Measured scan of single mutants.
Amino acid sequence: GTEIELESKNGQREHYTATSEDEARKIIEKAVRRGIKRIELRGASEQLIRDMQEIAKQIGLQYRTDGSL
């Protein structure tokens, strides 16, 4: 699965493990709508990382991946 670590603007951290790319995408989209400061992805697919970079650029988000592409 993909591990997703979120940090909201007030510094609250949340951790999710998505079993599918679809689920990961839903978690990320929800977080973005809620207003999130930072997202870290571990074990994400190349496609998901590309999507994440696109989203991050659009809304000026900090993100990090573990680089295991």
Rank of each mutant, 00 (worst) to 15 (best):
G1D: 11
G1Y: 15
G1S: 12
G1R: 13
G1H: 12
G1P: 10
T2R: 01
T2Y: 12
E3C: 13
E3S: 11
E3M: 08
E3R: 11
I4H: 01
I4E: 00
I4A: 00
I4T: 00
E5R: 12
E5A: 10
E5G: 08
E5T: 15
E5I: 14
E5W: 14
E5C: 14
E5S: 13
L6D: 01
L6W: 13
L6F: 11
L6Q: 01
E7C: 11
E7Q: 09
E7R: 07
E7K: 05
E7A: 04
S8T: 14
S8G: 12
S8M: 15
S8L: 15
S8A: 08
S8E: 10
S8W: 15
S8N: 14
K9I: 14
K9M: 13
K9V: 13
K9G: 10
K9F: 08
N10E: 11
N10C: 14
G11L: 02
G11F: 02
G11N: 04
G11Q: 02
Q12V: 10
Q12L: 12
Q12Y: 08
Q12N: 09
Q12S: 10
Q12G: 08
Q12H: 11
Q12D: 12
R13Y: 10
R13N: 05
R13D: 01
R13T: 10
E14P: 01
E14D: 05
E14T: 09
H15P: 01
H15Q: 09
H15W: 11
H15C: 14
H15T: 10
Y16K: 02
Y16N: 01
Y16F: 07
Y16C: 08
Y16S: 01
T17Y: 14
T17G: 03
T17E: 07
T17W: 15
T17H: 13
A18F: 15
A18N: 09
A18C: 14
A18M: 05
A18L: 08
T19V: 13
T19W: 13
T19R: 14
T19I: 10
S20R: 03
S20D: 12
S20H: 05
S20Y: 03
S20N: 14
S20G: 05
E21W: 06
E21R: 05
E21Y: 13
E21G: 05
E21V: 07
E21P: 05
D22W: 08
D22Q: 09
D22C: 11
D22M: 06
D22P: 06
E23Y: 04
E23I: 05
E23D: 08
E23Q: 08
E23T: 03
E23S: 05
E23N: 03
E23V: 05
E23P: 00
E23L: 04
A24N: 00
A24C: 06
A24D: 00
A24L: 06
A24F: 05
R25Y: 09
R25F: 06
K26D: 13
K26T: 10
K26G: 09
K26A: 12
I27D: 00
I27E: 00
I27A: 01
I28W: 02
I28S: 00
I28D: 00
I28V: 05
I28C: 03
I28E: 00
I28A: 02
I28K: 00
E29D: 08
E29P: 00
E29I: 07
E29S: 07
E29M: 12
E29Y: 10
E29G: 06
K30E: 14
K30R: 10
K30Q: 14
K30F: 11
A31V: 07
A31S: 05
A31W: 06
A31K: 02
A31D: 00
V32R: 02
V32F: 13
V32I: 15
V32Y: 05
V32M: 15
V32H: 01
V32A: 06
R33E: 11
R33V: 09
R34A: 14
R34G: 11
R34Q: 12
R34I: 08
R34C: 12
R34N: 13
R34Y: 05
G35I: 01
G35H: 05
G35A: 04
G35T: 02
I36E: 01
I36Y: 10
I36L: 09
I36A: 07
I36V: 12
K37R: 14
K37W: 09
K37P: 02
K37G: 04
K37D: 05
K37M: 11
K37S: 07
R38S: 09
R38P: 00
I39C: 02
I39N: 00
I39A: 01
I39F: 04
I39D: 00
I39Y: 01
E40L: 15
E40F: 13
E40A: 13
E40H: 11
L41M: 10
L41N: 00
L41V: 14
L41A: 02
R42C: 08
R42W: 13
R42P: 02
R42T: 10
R42L: 04
R42S: 06
R42F: 09
R42N: 06
G43Y: 06
G43K: 04
G43A: 04
G43S: 04
A44H: 03
A44N: 02
A44M: 03
S45V: 02
S45N: 09
S45T: 08
S45E: 01
S45F: 03
S45K: 02
S45H: 03
E46Y: 05
E46K: 08
E46M: 09
E46P: 11
E46H: 09
E46A: 12
Q47S: 11
Q47W: 06
Q47A: 12
Q47K: 09
L48E: 01
L48C: 04
L48I: 04
L48R: 00
I49M: 10
I49E: 05
I49D: 05
I49K: 07
I49S: 06
I49H: 09
I49L: 11
I49C: 10
R50H: 12
R50C: 07
R50K: 14
R50P: 00
R50A: 08
D51Q: 08
D51L: 13
D51S: 07
D51K: 08
D51N: 05
M52F: 10
M52C: 09
M52Q: 00
M52A: 07
Q53D: 15
Q53V: 14
Q53T: 09
E54C: 09
E54G: 06
E54T: 10
I55L: 14
I55W: 12
I55N: 02
I55M: 10
A56V: 09
A56L: 13
A56F: 14
A56N: 03
A56S: 05
K57A: 12
K57L: 12
Q58H: 08
Q58A: 12
Q58K: 11
Q58P: 03
Q58G: 07
I59A: 15
G60V: 04
G60N: 08
G60Y: 05
L61C: 14
L61Q: 04
L61N: 04
L61E: 05
Q62M: 11
Q62S: 09
Q62P: 05
Y63S: 05
Y63H: 07
Y63I: 15
Y63L: 15
Y63D: 08
Y63M: 15
Y63Q: 06
Y63W: 15
Y63F: 15
R64T: 15
R64E: 15
T65E: 15
T65S: 13
T65G: 14
T65N: 14
T65P: 15
T65R: 03
T65Q: 14
T65M: 06
D66C: 13
D66Q: 04
D66A: 04
D66V: 06
D66S: 03
G67V: 10
G67R: 02
G67N: 08
G67D: 13
S68V: 12
L69I: 10
L69C: 14
L69G: 09
L69A: 08
